[in-house]
Every structure is written in C-alpha cells, then in structure tokens.
Simulated scan of single mutants.
Amino acid sequence: MRAANCLAALLLAALLGAAFAWPDSARADELRPVAISFTQLDENRWRLDWKQPVASPAARLAFPTPPDNCRMAGELVVRSGAAALIGGVEVECDGSVADRRIGARDLVVAGDALLRVVPLGRAVQTHRLTASEPEATIAGIPAAAQVWRSYFGLGVEHILEGWDHLLFVIALVLLVARGWTVVKAATAFTLAHSLTLAAVTFGYAGLPSRPVEALIALSIVFLAVELARGDGETLTRRLPWAVAFGFGLFHGFGFAGALREIGLPEGEVPAALVTFNLGVEAGQLLVIAAVLALRRVLQRVSPHAEPPAVRLAAYAIGITGSYWLFDRIIA
C-alpha cells in the first residue's frame, strides 16, 4: 500500500505543480524569447536590432555581441515596448561576416533567443541561441534545415512550458485513458490549432488575446469537470476527437500570439509554421506517453489507488483552470 501511495503521489506531482505556480502561469500561453535581427544595409554596414522581454520596469537593456570584425557606427536607439525593451544600432564591419560568431550571452540568461541574419541577396539564416549555446556562426551558405531545427525546438518548448496547453492535454489523457484514442484526440487538437495558427498568420482570422486566454482556461475547466465525474459517460469520452478539435481552434489563437511575439522568418513562413506544429505534436506525445505510463504502473501495482489519484488530479486541474479563467476575465 505504501508503494501505491508513492506512485499516486508521482502521478499527482506533475498535475499539482501548476496549482502552486499560479502567478507565473496566469499568462502561460506566452512564448517570449529574445528576438535578434542582424540585417545587412550595404557592403559594409549592418543593422543590429533586438527585443528583450522584461519582467519589471527597472530592468536594463542587455546587448547582443556582433561579429568581432564589426564595430558600432551609429547612435544606439532604445525604446520601451509591451513588456519589452527594444534596442537598435548600426554597425560597420571590416570585410565579410561569413564564418564569424554572433551571440547573446547576456540576453539568454533567463530564456532562449531567436537570431535572424539577413544578408543582401542571400537567404535569411535563423539560429536558436540558448544559455548553453549563446553564440552562432554566420554561414556563408545557410543550411536549409536551420529554420526547421529552430522552430521545431520552439514548438516543443512551448507545449512543455505552456501550462495552459499542457494541462488541457493531461486532462484529455486522464479522461480518455486509452492509448491510440488519446493519440488521435491529441492529433485532432494539433490539426485544429494548426488551422487557426495558419489562418491568423496569413491574415484570414484573428481574435483579441483576452477572450482567447479566457476560452483556453475554460477548456481546461470543462475537461476537469468531466474528469471529476468519474467513469460515467461524458461528451469527451464519446467524442474525444471532436472536443479536442473544437477547443484546439481556440488554442490556436494562443499559439498565434506566441509566434507573433517571436516573429516568422521572411520567405520561410510555411516551413516555420509546419515545424513549429510538429514540435508541439512531439511535445504532446512525450507528455501523453509519460502520463499513460504512470497511470499504467499505478493500475498494476494498486488498482484501488488509481480512482482517488485521478479525482485529486481533476480537482487540481479544475482549480488551476478556474483561477486562470477568473484572472483572465477580470485582469
């Protein structure tokens, strides 16, 4: 019985964590890495622009590091944006910047940075900088897979760090509880938010962020209520793919807001959208596999411990979703 209780605690740990992170998770839909753009103006002059998300008005602007053969050649311009500091400056470079290093060591302390290098007459390069790899090498001929790697990683990161989307997926797994049925429902969720994300990106649809965030929270509360009802028949158990698809349309507006913050590479928008969504799907499948595995172990070791563990998880998810719902309505 002691082992069963430990396993039940493991199952709940991932779900209850959100309940103790309300202040940080109330806007969990945001994906806001640092955005850096290095754009060539003529043979020797480049423009270095960057946006640094900040948590407080007292934050100071950090600086990216240009290639070592470049120097500042204009006035630094700094302005404040929505929860961000924005900097820009012209730099002059001696010779080619190909194979030179450009980085953001001071900017990636609290998160990732997305770097775009835009040379004249050549393809745009996209690099994802992290705390462990804060610099990138500017390629003379960029690899076609750069955008795919960068936006795939951003998609995985967004679903794993975005608690609102993550709790929806976890509640769906616990509610449906059948392997392939869950995968199909999660895929319907991905397909729906992919459609909305594409529609918003290309200007065919759009909704204000506040009602979108409230509807995302409402979707979590809806699944939590159904989960708390026990093993009885519910709409989601009858039509899991339909419920996942319907709510996925609204979650897509949230993903669109996240991508709007980081931007999409010119000329590579379709590739970025596809790989971002593939990353989201990969992250979802990891979460689904982990929750199903924990539940299967609990069923084998102590079947009697599973129903109360799932019910407690439903309450934790429902309370968290309700908090987000009220916070997003009245904030």
Score class of each variant (00 low, 15 high):
Ala177Lys: 08
Val124Ala: 05
Leu15Asn: 07
Gly81Leu: 02
Gly155Lys: 04
Val77Trp: 13
Ala55Lys: 13
Leu114Asp: 04
Leu235Thr: 07
Gly111Ala: 05
Gln284Tyr: 01
Gln125Pro: 08
Asn69Ala: 11
Asn277Tyr: 06
Glu133Asn: 04
Arg149Ser: 12
Ala316Trp: 01
Met1Val: 14
Tyr323Val: 12
Gly283Glu: 07
Arg128Asp: 05
His127Cys: 06
Arg178Leu: 11
Glu261Pro: 00
Leu235His: 02
Arg260Cys: 11
Ala18Glu: 10
Tyr151Thr: 08
Ala192Asn: 02
Ile216Tyr: 00
Arg295Asp: 14
Thr201Asp: 06
Gly321Val: 09
Leu16Val: 14
Leu174Ser: 10
Leu11Gly: 09
Leu298Gln: 01
Ala309Thr: 09
Val243Glu: 06
Val183Thr: 11
Ala271Phe: 12
Ile141Ala: 12
Gly318Ser: 00
Gln299Glu: 14
Ala282Cys: 14
Asp99Pro: 01
Met1Thr: 14
Phe276Thr: 03
Pro57Cys: 11
Ala309Cys: 05
Ala139Asp: 13
Gly162Asn: 04
Gly103Met: 04
Asp29Phe: 13
Pro211Ala: 01
Ile220Glu: 00
Asp68Ala: 13
Val54Ala: 09
Pro307Tyr: 03
Ala242Glu: 02
Ala177Leu: 09
Gly283Leu: 07
Asn44Trp: 12
Asp106Lys: 11
Ile329Pro: 05
Val182Phe: 03
His251Arg: 07
Thr130Ile: 12
Gly254Arg: 03
Leu227Thr: 00
Ala290Asn: 08
Ala136Lys: 01
